[in-house]
Design a protein around this nucleic acid. Structure first.
Lengths: 149, 149
DNA sequence: TCTATTTGGTTCCATATCTAAATTTTTCGC
DNA sequence: GCGAAAAATTTAGATATGGAACCAAATAGA
């Protein structure tokens, strides 16, 4: 027999996460240098913190986006001079993306700009408490990421 | 003096939340009845769980969207017969939105369809653990929601 | 080796959202 | 009553993203 549980706990969890994500993105988008969009910052920030080279396909996997979407965003980042591109000498089909000095500066400007908000949030929420939450979120993200498509 | 902290904890927190939100929405969108979109389900689910009437402006505030965006989505929900609309007898400028039987059915179909995923997630993550996380998320959501615009 | 398949990337098109601003109608404070 | 504010709609347009078709290069296998 069917047994619809309709888990209110899961609904609460994802409702809160969805709301937080939405609200934070609103704040973040206000902090970006003019001309830079959220999708662009996400990739720029990812490359900046990883501090290495990434191929478009790797980025597509990291962000769970299609190759076309990544191509689109990388084209814009390149037009703004925020990234460098070089061939992959081991695989002529591929290319490697790295962040430029201008890209680092733009990224840092954005991060500095939201820093007050982040700092205040951490102060209110508590660093220890926050730190204890992250593993849960990471596990959840990994499980979701491994679901069959 | 300026003291850029560049809080890696906050970066981790919002990175994970963003990834979770994105991944979950992918799964959810696959579970929706054909023709129903994510933005429509979000509103439908909101009205269904609240089990009352809402004005477009209230919905716009709940979801942090513009009135235009809500009008757009409500028009589509109405065209599909998922919601009812009636005048607000106390304020002729306003109107009240409620969910229809067809809307409830469609919403329940969607929820039933993701139920296996949700159930499995809760089993893996642990109901108690999840329950202990929610207050943190709710607080964070409230703080973000109260930030100056 | 030759062929079939897979993979990295790009392009093009469709569509989902959403914002912003202008507009209409109604309400409300004074 | 009047002017300001609020509810809802309309319109125009920006953005992001998926999906499919396509090319070129790599790779597996017979």
């Amino acid at each position: 027999m069917s047994k619809p549980i309709n888990d209110p706990l899961a609904v609460s969890l994802f409702s809160e996460i969805s709301a937080i994500d939405h609200l934070f993105k609103i704040q973040l988008s206000k902090s970006l240098p003019i001309g830079m969009k959220l999708s662009q910052f996400a990739i720029l920030n990812h490359i900046a913190t990883l501090d290495g080279e990434k191929t478009p396909v790797q980025l597509a996997r990291s962000f769970n986006l299609t190759k076309g979407a990544i191509t689109n965003t990388l084209t814009k980042l390149s037009a703004m001079g925020y990234i460098h591109t070089r061939p992959d000498w081991d695989d002529a089909r591929s290319k490697l993306i790295s962040i430029s000095t201008a890209g680092k500066n733009a990224r840092n400007r954005a991060v500095d700009s939201i820093e007050p908000i982040l700092g205040n949030l951490m102060k209110v929420m508590g660093a220890e408490k926050t730190k204890s939450i992250i593993p849960f979120l990471r596990d959840l993200r990994i499980i979701l990421n491994n679901l069959e498509n």
